[in-house]
């Protein structure tokens, strides 16, 4: 059993991002401030081009913000912080193709200085947790897309992070696999108590997974609304999704995103029917 690591709270204060390339400046993120509590699962949705990936890369410390700051567990993020793991959309490209599945999962642990026996145990448990205990000796490219993304999740889980960042992790897997992986993320989250930020463009997915859903505006991005998802802790692909509350929340977020696409910049201006 992978140990329950305690999540860290994440705080975003007046983050702004301006890309300066080829002479002209593009403001990707205008002003974002929000807090994610330790051990919370938050989904981030928004119209395509809403700077979701930019935000996630800033949170991960992979991209410097133009101004503002991100703090993780009280420490300001300057470059990738320890105790953070990421799962990217491009599963096929985020796994090292020259390493077996086991080695891929083990690599960050080596860097962390985990002793060999302990590494072995963590790798095995993480692979079991994603139901890939038998695939350790395979290479990532020998696996299907869904399995590859599970390896990436196992790598993140074995790392025992306080915060797990996921950038549209299931955008490129088929629909059925996707539902399975969603439940896997929920299960792992509940088991590990880790803070999860899950970026997606899929509104149903966001509502199904999240405790809260952050709806972003069009570029330059601001936060439109933090939607509380009170669907309880136990979620089920059939029951939850057919629940009236789910439908209401889903429609609410859907309308917001649709209007955000057309340029909605404040929740006060929204014309909501749900």
């Amino acid at each position: 059993m992978v140990q329950k690591s305690h999540g860290a709270d994440l705080s975003v204060r007046s983050v702004r991002k301006v890309y300066t390339g080829r002479g002209q400046a593009v403001e990707a993120i205008q002003d974002l401030s929000f807090d994610v509590n330790a051990g919370e699962l938050v989904c981030v949705v928004g119209p395509s081009g809403a700077g979701k990936t930019t935000l996630l890369r800033i949170l991960a410390g992979l991209l410097p913000a133009t101004s503002g700051e991100v703090t993780l567990g009280g420490t300001v993020v300057k470059g990738p912080p320890p105790g953070m793991a990421v799962v990217l959309q491009e599963y096929g490209r985020s796994l090292f193709p020259w390493m077996t599945v086991e080695k891929n999962v083990e690599l960050p642990l080596k860097e962390k200085g985990v002793a060999k026996a302990e590494r072995k145990r963590l790798v095995q448990e993480a692979l079991e947790a994603v139901s890939l205990a038998d695939a350790g000796k395979s290479y990532p490219w020998q696996l299907s897309g869904g399995m590859q993304q599970r390896v990436a999740i196992a790598r993140a889980v074995a790392y025992e992070p306080q915060v797990l960042l996921m950038d549209e992790p299931f955008a490129a897997v088929d629909a059925q696999t996707r539902l399975e992986l969603e439940d896997l993320v929920r299960a792992l989250w509940r088991r590990l108590g880790v803070t999860v930020i899950f970026v997606t463009h899929d509104i149903d997915e966001a509502v199904y997974l999240g405790e809260r859903v952050f709806v972003l505006s069009n570029r330059p991005t601001i936060l439109l609304e933090e939607v509380k998802i009170d669907l309880g802790a136990e979620r089920d692909q059939i029951e939850t999704r057919t629940h009236p509350a789910f439908g209401r929340l889903r429609n609410h977020v859907y309308e917001l995103v649709q209007q955000a696409k057309k340029g909605l910049r404040s929740i006060e201006d929204a014309r909501l029917t749900h």
């Binding site: 410390g61 470059g79 990738p80 990421v86 090292f96 690599l107 860097e111």
Partner: peptide, 19 residues
């Protein structure tokens, strides 16, 4: 994407070189 992954997991220069 691989470079980002290596950075996100904080791989040091030596391990980056060989891995």
């Amino acid at each position: 994407v691989l470079k980002d992954t290596a950075r996100a997991y904080g791989l040091g220069p030596v391990r980056r070189l060989f891995s």
